[in-house]
């Protein structure tokens, strides 16, 4: 079955807390009724949590599988590392998020069930000052509700670096 993201009020509350946003429209139904949207809505970056419901998402530990975060050893824990797997999951952390862009077509509210289509965008390279060669990869994801209405268009750019990017 294709991945689906059920939009739930409790998840919106937890997400809003995690970005330090106390706006009652994210958890108080009575309050939300009196606002312009007229219902609880999700914060602008909430759709990123579709990762929770993406079956093959590599940055979530999976039961019984090797995980690349620390346990007894600084790199790698959980089940024994499969011999063919050199870096696992997020590739040992070499991939970072470079850009994220959203277009909002309709409010995201509890009760919606999103599905999505992802298409690859462009790939380009640049020489970084600290991290060596940078390889950028773009992907475009269109999120639809259960009635196939377009809800959000997301454009994401990831970057892989030769060396750890230590700036800031």
């Amino acid at each position: 079955m294709a991945d689906q993201f059920p939009i739930e009020a409790g998840h919106i509350l937890l997400f809003a807390r995690s970005v330090g946003d106390a706006n009652p429209i994210y958890y108080d139904e009575e309050y939300a009724k009196k606002t312009e949207p007229g219902a609880i809505i999700a914060p602008p970056t909430f759709v990123q949590a579709s990762a929770q419901f993406t079956e093959d998402y590599g940055l979530r530990p999976k039961v019984g599988e090797w995980w690349f975060g620390s346990g007894k050893e600084p790199r790698g824990s959980g089940a024994p590392k499969p011999p063919e797997q050199e870096s696992g999951g997020g590739g040992g952390g070499g991939g970072l998020h470079a850009e994220q862009h959203y277009e909002y077509h309709r409010p995201l509210t509890p009760g919606m069930v999103l599905h999505w289509e992802r298409e690859p965008g462009e790939t380009w390279e640049r020489e970084g000052r600290r991290a060596g060669k940078l390889i950028f990869t773009e992907s475009i994801t269109k999120y639809y509700d259960q009635d196939n209405n377009l809800v959000i268009t997301a454009r994401s750019v990831g970057v892989r670096t030769e060396r750890p990017a230590t700036q800031g």
Partner: peptide, 8 residues
């Protein structure tokens, strides 16, 4: 935890 991005 909320986003699901558990990158260590």
């Amino acid at each position: 935890g909320s986003s699901g991005d558990y990158n260590p």
